[in-house]
């Protein structure tokens, strides 16, 4: 206490001394150049910042402008119907939506246990030197171009799936889910690992001091304490998976069938992203098909937006709770 007060008294004159030269400089008019430079830089940054927001808004408006007519041109029962045959003016998007949802959910179902387990290993179990190697390696995985993964999936994973499952083709929803799981793993691992890292040591100490084993402490104390961060990790992984196009298009076979039968997971499927990517190049601008593809884009956007919103609300809850403490 006493020491702190003395420090304050010491600092006060210094603070005044620091202020003084600035005010003299202004008074003498020497700061004018600096002033102009400051003005320019500040406004340049402001313009750039706002233009970034502006572009996003413009893209969004464009998406709406091109996509919204879909909902007037195509009757809703047809639009959400089960048959996607654009050549016959049948634009049922249900197979595409369900295709995306199926592939994404299965991908997350695979990636979630793997990702959380890996994060727990990296943060809680691995020795320091292993952690130092593993973390950058996992982050590098996120940088592999998806077309490379798609190529890998086509040449290695798909034949493997075909042979192991005895399916007529290896280009299935499951193959796509495997690749998507692999692609969302780095995101899930890094975010979950950060969440585990943020769990205070005092919780671990409390668990151990209660006579819990290391594993019990991790499983019953640390992981639940990091729950909101882990949920965020899943949401982000999901966002990545549902929006992924190239790898999925290369390995899922792209048959627009309703994935509602029991074996659908091991049959070809077509996702929203793959449909847009594959067909956008062939449609006449302004045609119904053209607008429908944008409409699919809007549906996709709404889905990802909802996922992100869910993730954000979890983060928000965590912050609010943190603020209470």
């Amino acid at each position: 206490m006493c020491g702190a007060r003395m420090n304050d008294q010491e600092q006060q004159p210094r603070r005044e001394a620091r202020v003084e030269p600035v005010s003299t400089a202004r008074g003498l008019g020497q700061g004018r150049d600096h002033h102009w430079g400051e003005f320019l830089v500040e406004n340049a940054i402001r313009v750039l910042g706002f233009s970034a927001i502006g572009f996003v808004v413009l893209i969004f408006l464009f998406l709406l402008q091109e996509g919204l007519p879909t909902f007037f041109r195509v009757e809703l029962p047809i639009l959400f119907g089960q048959r996607w045959y654009p050549t016959f003016d049948l634009y049922g998007t249900m197979p595409l939506i369900l295709g995306s949802v199926l592939v994404t959910i299965v991908a997350i179902a695979i990636a979630l246990p793997l990702g959380v387990a890996t994060a727990v290993f990296v943060r809680e179990v691995a020795p320091n030197w292993a952690r130092e190697i593993l973390k950058p390696m996992i982050e590098t995985l996120a940088g592999i171009p998806s077309v490379v993964l798609g190529f890998f999936g086509m040449t290695i994973v798909a034949p493997l799936v075909r042979d192991v499952l005895g399916a007529p083709t290896g280009l299935t929803a499951f193959t796509g889910a495997l690749l998507l799981a692999y692609m969302s793993l780095p995101t899930i691992i890094s975010v979950a690992e950060d969440a585990l890292d943020a769990v205070p040591k005092s919780y671990r100490d409390a668990g151990l001091a209660m006579g819990a084993t290391r594993w019990q402490t991790i499983w019953r104390v640390v992981v639940p304490a990091a729950r909101s961060g882990i949920i965020t990790a899943i949401m982000l992984g999901m966002g990545r998976a549902i929006g992924e196009t190239m790898a999925v298009m290369m390995v899922t076979g792209n048959a627009a069938r309703m994935p509602v039968t029991a074996d659908s997971l091991f049959r070809p499927v077509r996702t929203m992203t793959a449909t847009i990517a594959a067909e956008m190049g062939e449609v006449a601008r302004g045609s119904t098909h053209y607008h429908v593809l944008f409409g699919v884009g809007i549906i996709l956007f709404v889905l990802t937006f909802m996922i992100n919103l869910a993730a954000a609300s979890v983060i928000f809850q965590k912050r609010r709770r943190g603020g209470l403490r």
Binding site: P200, S202, Y203, M210, G211, A212, R220, P224
Partner: peptide
Amino acid sequence: LRQRVGMVFQRPNPFPQSVYNNVAFGPRV
């Protein structure tokens, strides 16, 4: 040993869980 020699820390460090689960932690473990 730690089940026989318990410890209370300098800063209260309940788990970020319900009151019930905090107390039930040890017996459950």
